[in-house]
Computed example of a mutant assay.
Amino acid sequence: MNEFWAGVLSSVAASCMLAVLGWTLSPTARRRAKRVILKGANAGVLDTFKSQREAGGEIAKHLAGAREIRVLAGRGNELQRETFQALWDGGDRRDVKILLPDPERSGPGSWIDDHQQEAIAYDGGQGDRMIAESIRNNVEYVKNRVGRLDPAQVALYDFPAIGRIVLTEDLAFITPYSDRRHGADSPCVMVASGHALYDFADRIFVKFQQASRQI
Rank of each mutant, 00 (worst) to 15 (best):
I120T: 06
S15H: 12
Y122T: 08
Q85P: 08
R213K: 09
A121S: 15
N42A: 14
D170K: 08
R31L: 03
L100P: 00
P151S: 11
I204Q: 10
G56Q: 03
P108L: 08
R180V: 13
R145C: 12
M1K: 14
K97H: 07
D158M: 04
M1R: 00
T48E: 14
E54S: 07
T28R: 15
N42E: 07
L100A: 11
R75M: 13
A73F: 04
D199P: 00
R94T: 07
E58R: 05
I162S: 06
V20F: 07
V189H: 08
G56E: 13
S212V: 02
T83K: 11
D47L: 04
G163N: 09
R94C: 11
S10W: 13
C16F: 02
D150E: 13
S15M: 07
A132T: 13
V45R: 00
K97A: 00
N2M: 02
L9P: 04
R53G: 13
A41L: 03
R35E: 08
G22P: 12
P160I: 03
Y141R: 10
Y157I: 02
S26E: 14
I37K: 11
A60Q: 15
A86I: 02
H182I: 05
E3A: 13
A60I: 09
K207C: 00
F49D: 07
H62A: 07
H182A: 01
H115N: 04
A60G: 08
G90H: 00
V96I: 00
L167T: 01
G91T: 08
R136G: 08
S193R: 14
V96L: 12
R203P: 05
